[in-house]
Amino acid sequence: MSNDEIFEKVRKTLIDALSVDDDEVTPEATLIGDLGAESIDFLDISFRLEKEFAIKIPRGELFPDNMSLADKSLVKDGLVTPEGITELRTRLPHANVDKFAADPKMEHISELFTVQMIVNFMAHKLNG
């Protein structure tokens, strides 16, 4: 499946799950900031992706259960430490961590969750 086809299916999924307009769903759009997703929506999105692509998404694979880095001392003075960045790369291999690493403020961590991250994840799942 091409990335364009995957994007179209992801777009449809997000329109249904988040009641957003199709022109709001761009690759760069962040799920929480731009599309207004709340925690429970991530489960909804996972269910719809599974249905749309006819695959199983194991728990925590697309959206990690616990994104709190604080208790692991991976955050210092509101900034994610280099060790924290390494942790993020491991847990969110399909997110644009490079962009975040340039200005690693903890408060921007939700911006890692973009439409493109889902497309990358699905491409990896479907095409290996």
Partner: peptide, 10 residues
Amino acid sequence: LLDSSEQGGM
């Protein structure tokens, strides 16, 4: 029941 997992269902 459309879908269910250990986290919930739809």
